[in-house]
């Protein structure tokens, strides 16, 4: 039995290299955790497709079942769930995030 919300989520994460389900938008985050992840991705020069879950309650709830992950933000790279704020920050601080993105073939803005 297909789940239309999950189908919508799937199409979003397949359509963009880096997708961040967040509260607010990358330029106007509306939650500290979402802002932290958006800032980290901006800092390393990754182009992010932001999905504002506050503007889409179906996605806000559906994404938690889709990943079996209880919180927002949620970062996807090349269709793969990477983590929430804690994991992205930990990966960034260890230098792992940049390597991970490069290994996945994600273009990073050299100026960053």
């Amino acid at each position: 039995m297909s789940n239309p919300v999950h189908d919508r989520i799937k199409s979003m994460i397949d359509a963009h290299d880096v997708v961040l389900f967040m509260k607010g938008t990358p330029s106007f985050p509306q939650c500290g955790f979402s802002a932290t992840v958006a800032k980290i991705l901006d800092h390393i020069g990754a182009e992010v497709h932001g999905v504002n879950v506050l503007a889409d309650p179906d996605i806000r709830n559906g994404i938690k079942d889709f990943t079996n992950w209880p919180t927002i933000p949620q970062l996807y790279v090349k269709g793969e769930f990477v983590g929430g704020c804690d994991i992205v920050r930990e990966m960034f601080e260890s230098g792992e995030l940049k390597t991970f993105l490069k290994d996945k073939g994600v273009e990073l803005d050299a100026a960053a």
């Binding site: 994991i87 930990e90 990966m91």
Partner: peptide
């Protein structure tokens, strides 16, 4: 890390993101 964190979330029995708003 995702699998590790999920073990902790499961231990917290669904309180993560609800009763427990923010656990770094």
């Amino acid at each position: 890390r995702v699998a590790q964190h999920k073990l902790v979330f499961d231990a917290l029995g669904g309180r993560m993101g609800g009763e427990l708003h923010a656990l770094a």
